[in-house]
Design a protein around this nucleic acid. Structure first.
Lengths: 341, 341
DNA sequence: TTGTATGCGTTATCAA
DNA sequence: TTGATAACGCATACAA
C-alpha cells in the first residue's frame, strides 16, 4: 500500500495520489488562483493523508533564495546578547525568516567559518553582533554578496549598515553622572580599546567627561577585560588595591558591574556607601542585583528588531541601504551609585 | 570580462574558467582522489579567483540531507537555556552541524510552526528544550520522520530519547537538605505541575522529602509561576504574607530564587538569617547573587553536548536510539541557606 | 584520470 | 483551468 519510497513523500506522490499533475499540486501549495475548488480540496486531502511537506531545499534551489538569516554572536551566554537574540528571533520569525545562530566566543577562525557557511547556504541576510575581528574577515564579509548588518557593534572597516546607540555620548553621560555625584577618582573597567571600536568610543566619552570636569585621567584607574562577570570581579580586585582607591567605577557592561559589585561586597565594603558602581546595557541582570544597578540603558529589544527590519529592507529592497542607525540611550538611576561621602 | 551572471558563480563557471568539466571541479571540491595535482591546483585557483562557494542548497538536494539541527527553546533569555544553547552550538559546530534556533516563548502555535518549518527544511535532527505542549504537537513530532531528542525536559507522550537529571531525586535532595537545616515550613515556588512533567517530578520529590521528615505538606506554601525572576519576586511576596511564614523556600529555578531573594531583601528581611532560599539549575546567575545561591547543580554544559551527541547518533546511526539519559545532579552549598534559628 | 548524462524536488514557462 | 517540460546547481554512475 505504501507507494512512497523514502521518509518524505514528494510532490509527485501527492500528484499521483490526487490524480493530477505536479503543476497543479504546486499551484495549490502556493495558493495560486486558477485551480478548481474541487481539485484544490482533493489535493489538500492527499497532502494531509500523506503528511506531505514541501522541501524548502528544492524550492530554494529554483527560487534562488532562502528564508534564512544568519546571526553571529560573540557570547550567547551574556544576558545582553541573549536578549537581543530573542528579539531578533521574534522579529525575523514574524517576517517569515528563521535564524541560524553561531556563538563565536571571540574565535576569529570560527567567525570566518560561519561567514563561509552562511554564504554556502545562501542565507538571505546576515546579522553580526560583533566587531568583525580580522582584516580577512572584513574583506570576506564585504565580498560575500549578501546583505549584512552589524548590530550593537561598529562595522570597523566595513561600509555596512549598523544599529547602535551613541556609545561615546552614552559613556560621557555616565561618567558625567558619576562626576556630578561628587566622584573624582572614577575608574573604568571595560573592553580592549585597540580591538573594539565600541570600547574605544566609550573610553573616549569617559575621558571627555573627566576632562570637562577638570579631572585628570589616571591610567591606573582603567582596566581591560572582556565584558564578563568574571572579569569584573577580577579587575575590581585590582582596583581595590590601587591607591588612591576609586570611589566610583564605571563598568562597560552590567555583567562586569555585577562582578565588580560582588568583589566589593566580598571584601567587606559596601555598595554604594563605600564605592559606587555603574553598569552599561540595562540588561535583565541590572534590576536583579542588590543593590540594583544604576546603568546606561540601551534599548535592547529595539536594537534587535530594528536590525532585522534594516536587514530585510536590504534583502527585499533594491539598494543595499548603508544607513547607520543610532538609537537613544539613557541613564537609569537605581541603587548602586551614591553621592561621594 | 565578467562571465558570471548572478551574484554567486556556479560550478559551471569555475569549470569553464579552469578549462575542465564540472565533474572535475566537483571532485576537487570534495577532496576526491584521481585528480591530477596540476589540475587540482588550476581548479583551486579558479575557485579562489571567482570567489566561488558551492551551494549547499543544491548539494543538499542531491545528497538528500542537510547539516542542520533545529533547536526549540522555550526562553532563550533564561540563563539556564542560553548556557545549554551555547553548549549545543559548540558541540554541533564541532561535528559540522549548524543550528537553527527558535524561541517559542511558551507559544504552542509557534512550536508547531517551527516543527513544520524544520521538517520542510529537512533538518538532520531536532532538539527540543521544552515539553511538547499540545497533543497536536506531540503527534506531529512523532510523525515527522526526523531524529529528535528532548533535552532538559520530559518527552511526555513521546517515545523519543531525552537527556535530563533525575528531577524527582534532585528535588528530594534539596528539600531534605533544607529539612536537615531544621526548617519545617518549607515553601516551594515553581512551575505548573499539570503542564510540566519536570515541575511535577520536582514537586513529587519535595513532597517525598517532607513526608519522610514527618512534615505535613501545607498547600499554602506551594506557589506556581513560570520559572522567571519576575515570578519569583511576586510569589515570594505572597509567601511573605502567609502565616505561618515559611522559614525556607525552594525555588525551582535560580532565576526564581533570585527574584525571591530580592523580594525578601526589599521587604527588609535578611537572607539567609530570616529566610533561607534555595535555587535550582546552578546557572551562571547562582554565583552572581549575594548571598550566592545554594542550589541544585545541573551539569548544564553536559546536557547540551550530550543531547547533540545522542542526536547525532540517531542521525548517523541506523536505529533511532530511544535512550533516556540521566545525568548526575548535586547540591551546591553557597550562602543563601542557613540553619533555622 | 577525466567527461557525459541523469536525477535530486520544486517552480516557472509555455502550450493546450 | 490544467499539464508537459525545462531549469535551479550540484553529485554521481557510467563511459571513455
Amino acid at each position: 500500500m505504501d507507494k512512497t519510497a523514502g521518509r518524505h513523500p514528494k510532490i509527485k506522490d501527492v500528484a499521483s495520489s490526487a490524480g493530477v499533475s505536479v503543476t497543479t499540486v504546486s499551484r495549490v501549495l502556493n495558493g495560486h488562483p486558477y485551480v478548481r475548488e474541487e481539485i484544490r480540496a482533493k489535493v489538500a486531502a492527499s497532502i494531509e493523508a500523506l503528511g506531505y511537506s514541501p522541501s524548502s531545499i528544492a524550492r530554494s534551489l529554483v527560487r534562488r533564495s532562502t528564508d534564512l538569516i544568519g546571526v553571529i554572536v560573540s557570547d550567547i551566554t551574556a544576558s545582553f546578547f541573549s536578549t537581543i537574540l530573542g528579539s531578533i528571533e521574534e522579529a525575523a520569525s514574524a517576517k517569515g525568516y528563521a535564524i541560524l545562530v553561531s556563538n563565536i566566543a571571540e574565535d576569529p577562525e570560527k567567525e570566518l567559518r560561519y561567514l563561509k557557511l552562511f554564504k554556502g547556504m545562501r542565507v538571505a541576510g546576515i546579522i553580526v553582533m560583533h566587531e568583525p575581528t580580522t582584516a580577512a574577515i572584513r574583506r570576506y564579509a564585504a565580498s560575500i554578496g549578501i546583505p549584512l548588518v552589524v548590530s550593537s557593534a561598529r562595522p570597523a572597516g566595513l561600509s555596512e549598515p549598523s544599529v547602535n546607540i551613541d556609545d561615546e555620548t552614552a559613556a560621557y553621560d555616565a561618567a558625567s553622572y558619576l562626576a556630578g555625584l561628587g566622584h573624582r577618582a572614577i575608574a573604568l573597567i571595560g573592553g580592549d580599546c585597540e580591538r573594539l571600536t565600541t570600547a574605544r568610543m566609550r573610553y573616549d566619552g569617559y575621558r571627555r567627561a573627566l576632562a570637562e570636569k577638570g579631572i585628570e585621567a589616571d591610567p591606573a584607574l582603567v582596566k581591560v577585560g572582556d565584558f564578563k562577570t568574571q572579569d569584573g570581579y577580577m579587575l575590581m580586585g585590582e582596583l581595590l588595591r590601587t591607591s588612591p582607591r576609586p570611589s566610583a567605577v564605571f563598568a562597560l557592561s552590567d555583567d562586569m558591574a555585577a562582578g565588580a559589585m560582588n568583589r566589593v561586597m566580598d571584601e567587606g565594603l559596601r555598595v554604594p556607601e563605600d564605592i559606587s558602581i555603574m553598569g552599561f546595557d540595562d540588561s535583565a541582570l541590572a534590576s536583579m542585583t542588590r543593590p540594583a544597578l544604576t546603568t546606561v540603558h540601551q534599548p535592547i529589544a529595539d536594537i534587535g528588531s530594528i536590525s532585522v527590519e534594516s536587514l530585510i529592507r536590504g534583502i527585499e529592497g533594491d539598494r543595499p541601504s548603508t544607513e547607520g542607525i543610532i538609537l537613544r540611550h539613557r541613564i537609569v538611576e537605581r541603587a548602586s551609585c551614591a553621592r561621594k561621602a
